[in-house]
């Protein structure tokens, strides 16, 4: 298979629902009122979302708040139980096993060894009371390293990459600024060399100059390490800068997908046009 069409992750029909569902919405999900069923009030956060992620690619996911972007990514990181769907990770058994069907032990293993996640809120991704370096060590230990010297040199290398100064490394992240916390999170997520990295609204809430720093870092990492990434954002500027391809989500569905500049220059759906016209 040629490198440009080597898949890393294949997602098929992920549906995430809150509630049991009823005879009206279980079969046909096209008659929902926004994202819930008007008969049984079951909420569908994601409805039949499918996409492929290729090697070395950045896939952007945009959409309004509540459109199911974060739900999707968090489901892929096994943080939320998924009702239905198939996910194939090609570094795991050559993509022959649906990783949603594995045991919880296997899921934990996959999470520790082949997935990485960066949250909008650093409190979710970091242990605030431990030092920056031990946060990274924690993930390295989870991924199987046992040699103390190796762990510390590896952690220091990662903190070099994300440019955390040496004298701050033994401080707790709770004393760091927002941008620094985000960079430590990125280092932590990278520590197990994941083939896939999820970034959930990483730059939201940061000021522009710090945001540019974080984006620079992401771009550099992507180029140097050739990691595939899924970037969730409601900031079209971020997507425009980083993503090769983009999915647009609305009310739990992917309403449009394509090359990023095609989405921005020739949007087809009414919602996407509205979104693009709102870009500053």
């Amino acid at each position: 298979m040629q490198d440009f069409e080597k898949k890393v992750l294949s997602v098929k029909n992920i549906t995430r629902q809150f509630g049991e569902g009823c005879e009206y919405c279980n079969e046909d999900k096209s008659n929902l009122n926004r994202n819930y069923c008007s008969h049984c009030y079951t909420i569908y956060a994601c409805r039949d979302v499918s996409f492929d992620l290729y090697e070395g690619e950045i896939l952007g996911i945009v959409g309004e708040s509540g459109s199911g972007k974060s739900t999707l990514v968090r489901s892929l990181y096994f943080e939320q139980e998924v009702a239905k769907g198939e996910v194939y990770l090609f570094s795991h058994k050559e993509g022959k096993e649906n990783i949603f069907n594995t045991t919880s032990q296997q899921k934990r293993y996959l999470r520790d060894y082949s997935l990485g996640m960066v949250y909008q809120n650093p409190y979710l991704g970091l242990q605030m009371k431990f030092s920056a370096i031990s946060n990274i060590a924690q993930k390295l230990i989870a991924a199987g390293s046992r040699n103390v010297g190796q762990i510390s040199s590896c952690a220091n290398e990662l903190l070099d990459v994300v440019k955390i100064e040496e004298f701050r490394r033994k401080d707790a992240p709770s004393t760091f600024s927002g941008g620094m916390q985000q960079r430590v999170q990125i280092a932590k997520a990278l520590s197990n060399n994941p083939p896939v990295l999820f970034l959930d609204e990483v730059t939201t809430g940061l000021d522009l100059s710090v945001q540019a720093n974080v984006l620079d870092l992401i771009r550099k990492i992507q180029r140097d390490l050739n990691i595939s990434m899924i970037i969730v954002s409601h900031d079209l500027g971020v997507i425009k800068m980083l993503a090769n391809r983009t999915l647009v989500m609305l009310e739990g569905c992917v309403i449009e997908s394509g090359l990023t500049d095609q989405i921005l220059e020739d949007p087809q759906q009414p919602y996407t046009q509205q979104l693009v016209h709102s870009l500053l």
């Binding site: 394509g258 090359l259 500049d261 095609q262 220059e265 020739d266 087809q268």
Partner: peptide
Amino acid sequence: LKSIYRSYL
């Protein structure tokens, strides 16, 4: 040109 470059669908 944009059609060739596929910026347009």
